[in-house]
């Protein structure tokens, strides 16, 4: 005698392999979109943190005017530090646009780098106060506190996040539809068996349970493989970026943090449970049409 009983629902390898592939691919894409969205958010956060409080003041005038401006900025409440940028530093800022040799006679603006205290940076308004103080001292200057930039970045990452969320939602819905379709096909193919089970006195929940267990296992396994592949893809991207040693601004700066681990760990479970529920709903609905 065999030690264990055969499953009541026969394995149908060809159909299940195809389904496994589909669920696996969907889970891979969903996990990867999740990872990309999360990394976009964290990269934006990091950047915003870095620029918050940083104030750049452009002074139109000579060195004396700049020195006066520095004194006024330093005297303004909530400003921690302020200093005029050297010509070499300004040239450095232009290097990406003008190359290594910035002409010596190129007139460069006088820049002052100031930093507001974190509390003032949070509250905002330090820029306007500086602007007013400089104007009162009749110094022609422009104050930029990067708030406009931060807002742009936030808007960009918010829409990237929304796109990722929509993508995950669509992938999830596709997965549910595919599972429902496959369940229905299996149910039709095994109609004789379902009828026999009914006549044997099986309740709908018993029959549905057979399908639920089958698709739960399939979802979890396919989901795990998909998540693993997404992890591999993310690690690969990370590796390539690190190799290139480029400053990759904002977008895919994958870091594989705890949150990423959570995304990867949860997606197989979600895939499994979603598959199970899709199977359950499909079976229960189909069975109610049968005797």
């Amino acid at each position: 005698m065999k030690p264990s009983l055969s499953p009541l629902l026969p394995k149908e390898d060809a159909r299940e392999a195809a389904l496994f592939f589909v669920v696996c691919a969907l889970c891979f894409l969903a996990a990867l979109s999740g990872l990309v969205a999360r990394s976009a958010y964290s990269a934006a956060d990091e950047w915003t943190d870095r620029v918050t409080g940083q104030i750049t003041i452009r002074v139109r005038g000579d060195d004396a005017a700049t020195a006066r401006a520095v004194a006024i900025v330093k005297a303004t409440p909530d400003i921690i530090s302020a200093r005029a940028l050297e010509r070499a530093e300004s040239e450095e800022l232009l290097r990406p646009w003008l190359g290594a040799a910035v002409p010596a006679d190129l007139p460069l603006p006088h820049l002052i780098a100031a930093e507001a205290s974190p509390s003032a940076a949070k509250a905002g308004g330090a820029g306007q106060r500086l602007s007013a103080a400089l104007k009162a001292a009749s110094i022609d200057a422009t104050v930029d506190d990067h708030i406009v930039w931060s807002k742009d970045v936030k808007r960009a990452t918010d829409s990237a996040g929304l796109v990722a969320l929509v993508a995950v939602g669509l992938l999830g819905a596709t997965g549910l539809a595919v599972i429902a379709f496959a369940t229905h096909a299996t149910l039709l193919a095994r109609r004789d068996m379902v009828e026999l089970l009914h006549l044997t006195g099986a309740k709908d929940t018993f029959i549905s349970g057979l399908f639920e267990r089958r698709f739960l296992m399939l979802g979890v396994q396919a989901g795990a493989l998909g998540a693993l592949l997404a992890f591999g893809a993310a690690a690969f991207i990370l590796f390539v970026v690190k190799q290139a040693d480029q400053q990759v601004w904002l977008l895919p700066q994958l870091s594989l943090s705890l949150a990423d681990g959570l995304i990867l760990g949860v997606s197989p479970l979600v895939a499994g449970i979603a598959s199970m529920l899709a199977a359950k709903v499909t079976v229960m609905r189909s069975l109610s049409d049968m005797v």
Binding site: M1, S6, P10, L196, L197, T200
Partner: peptide
């Protein structure tokens, strides 16, 4: 897909 034994045992499994 079930053996003779499993076929007979089906109602008990149910």
């Amino acid at each position: 897909h079930l053996t003779a034994y499993e076929n007979v045992a089906l109602p008990l499994r149910v």
